[in-house]
Design a protein around this nucleic acid. Structure first.
Lengths: 164, 164
DNA sequence: TCGATTTGGTTGACGTGTAAACTATATTCG
DNA sequence: CGAATATAGTTTACACGTCAACCAAATCGA
């Protein structure tokens, strides 16, 4: 608690300094930069997907299914997304209603529900591949490959502090 | 469209390569790294805030109000968060119900609603300052200051491609 | 001055993320 | 075998975030 108290400034001093000292530490600045940049990027992708009637989560599910090439159980999908389990149910519900996936209860283990991608969804993803690649290029195409590698290295190093 | 078509691989080839080629391009790898790292970090902060009964958005609103030092109109708060306008109403509603902010309609312009932080909220933020600083250190403390500066530089350069 | 436009804010509908509790099927072990 | 436990998935409740539509106060302009 000593530690925490020392890091605090008095309210008055703090508000005086707020304008001329936007970041207290390089750690804070880097974290804020990271989160803000990620949010902006995700917003751009969300906008693109929406033009095709998809949300980012829905697109992710379809990408996972296409990448796998065969049906997957719900929990396997949940694992590959970072998302928590319960959200998957509704997500699959809506994809099923749009006829982009089908649900089939496994015969060998009647607890598992296998989710398969439909031809309609594959066609939709096909239409998205070009624009998605273009957006990648737009967003970070102005960084050199060396910079991109360095960025990935730093991000991976940052993630080292996170369990799992 | 030529461009997009060329970037696409046949389904068969693609599924064969999927396992041994997790990223098609350095651009994709960097973007995925960025989003994943940000998500993990935000999850950690969310967990911390939850221990104190706050969501990340609620904490952000309170931080903005404390930083400003005086009441702010709703739209000003919405501006400083990246969030869209309509979500602010409910956010303020809940903070008001928790007695962490007060709402007052301005007398000079009767359209604007000024939101003020309460003493109770200032006390709560005070208790969070230490742990929040500690978490910053935990998450990126193992990067050198040079690395943090380089990370911030690359992220800012990446954001250059984003309008605004 | 009065009608049109702008601006601050709210409401409603929908999709998502999270935690907690619950159902149903499998599995394990005494 | 049969009870305890684990696993796959769903439901419920709540907090967002987004869009579209809306209301009311303020401002602009002929």
């Amino acid at each position: 608690m000593e530690d925490g108290a020392n890091r605090r400034m008095s309210g008055k001093l703090q508000s005086e300094l707020k304008k001329r000292m936007p970041f207290e530490t390089p750690e804070q600045e880097a974290l804020l930069n990271l989160v803000r940049t990620s949010d902006r990027i995700q917003f751009r992708f969300a906008r693109l997907f929406r033009e095709y009637g998809l949300t980012p989560s829905q697109y992710n599910v379809l990408r996972i299914l296409r990448g796998e090439g065969s049906p997957l159980p719900c929990l396997e999908i949940a694992d590959r997304m970072i998302a928590a389990v319960p959200g998957i149910t509704g997500l699959i519900d809506r994809l099923e209603a749009m006829e982009l996936v089908t649900r089939d209860r496994s015969t060998e283990d009647r607890r598992v529900v296998n989710v398969a991608i439909t031809a309609k969804a594959l066609e939709l993803l096909g239409k998205l591949d070009g624009p998605v690649g273009d957006l990648h290029a737009t967003l970070v195409g102005h960084l050199t490959h060396a910079e991109l590698r360095e960025l990935s290295r730093l991000l991976e190093k940052a993630r080292k502090s996170l369990p799992e």
